[in-house]
Amino acid sequence: MKCEDLLKAINEYVDGDIDPGICKDLEQHLAGCNPCKVVVDNVRKTITLYKAGKPYALPTALRQRLHKALAERWRKEFSQEPSRRRTRRR
C-alpha cells in the first residue's frame, strides 16, 4: 500500500467505516509511515476542532426581530395566540 492509497481511504478510516481487511492494510502502512500517521492525526484533530467550536451568538437586534416574527407566524399557523404574549391589548 502507498501513501496515495491511504489518502483515498482516509474518510472511511477516520470515520471508522471501513472494511476490516483494508483497515488492516492501512494500519500496517501507518505503522511504517510516520508522515501518514501524522496526517491522519491532523485530520482527526481538524474535525474535532470544527465540531467542538463555539457557535456565534445571534445579534440582539436579530433575536428580537426573529422572535417577534415567529410569534406572528405562529398565530397564523396555529390560529391562536402564542402562549407567551409580548403585547398587551388595550
Binding site: 500500500m1 501513501c3 496515495e4 502502512h29 501507518l30 508522515p35 501524522v38
Partner: peptide, 23 residues
C-alpha cells in the same frame, strides 16, 4: 490548520510514493 497549529520544528517531509515496510 496544520500550517497554523503544526509544530514547525517537528515538520516531516511528505513522502508520496514510498511503500511502507511490511506494506
Amino acid at each position: 490548520l496544520t500550517r497554523h497549529f503544526g509544530d514547525e520544528r517537528r515538520r516531516l517531509r511528505p513522502d508520496h510514493d514510498h511503500d511502507a515496510p511490511g506494506g
